[in-house]
Amino acid sequence: MTLRVIWRHTLMNVMNTIEYRGAFLIYMINVVAGPLVSLLVWLTVSEQGVRLPYDRSQFVTYYVLLSLVSMLTSTWAGGFLAQNIRLGSLSPMLLRPVTPLAGYIGNNLGEKIIKLPLLLPLIAFVALAFRDDLRLPADPLAWLLFGLALPMAAAIAFLLDIVLCSLAFWLDDVWGLLRVKALVGAFLAGQFVPLALFPPELSGFLEAQPFRYTLSFPLEVLTGHLSVAALARGFGWQVAYCVGLWACYRLEWRYGLRSYGAVGA
């Protein structure tokens, strides 16, 4: 039943989002523009003769794929959740015999269904511009593992957002936290700089922190930089974060609903 509700939410969000297709096209230009600027910066650095762990081709592949993966794993549900808690608009969702999370998941999926057709031509354009350096893996196993890592990355990003924004049950405002998370999270996820370029002393920390598994890890899986042991460890971390964050969410809601003021009316 919950899956059918999520699907219905997804369809409704697609219909809703179509009303604002112009705004979404602009968002998508932004999604491609960020990685493109980073790519150009690193290509310039690379051409200055600086020794880096990535060559030109790896940079191009990483940043071209980054636009797609970051859109597919991104989430904005937390902001809506925090607002719904603060303004009391969570109440109608709490009165239904389905977890309120179904609505936020549907919102996320609906958004991606709309964004993908807008984003793909933009990525294709960039890929065409750098076609001589783009190296996509030919091994089907890499794509298979990528197909496994990607939904888990999206789940971790979503749950991180929900767990953070569920603090709105107790805090008046979580927007400050969200901003810090957006900045630190993007940095630690490899949005600006591939994690392989960080100092080796940080490798233990970078491997353990959750943001790696929302973006960088699926890219690392696809670009074939990981040993079998590193792959196994990475998937282990992904599963652990999915389970751990789900448990945090359940705990927060169990006690948070006691603090929920259901303001308004």
Binding site: M15, N16, S91, P92, L95, R96, G264
Partner: peptide
């Protein structure tokens, strides 16, 4: 929850668009 409903004059359940 299957057996109840709460209707608030100033809260909406309908999707707007």
């Amino acid at each position: 929850l299957r057996q109840i409903a709460l209707v608030m004059g100033n809260k909406n359940v309908l999707a707007w668009d």
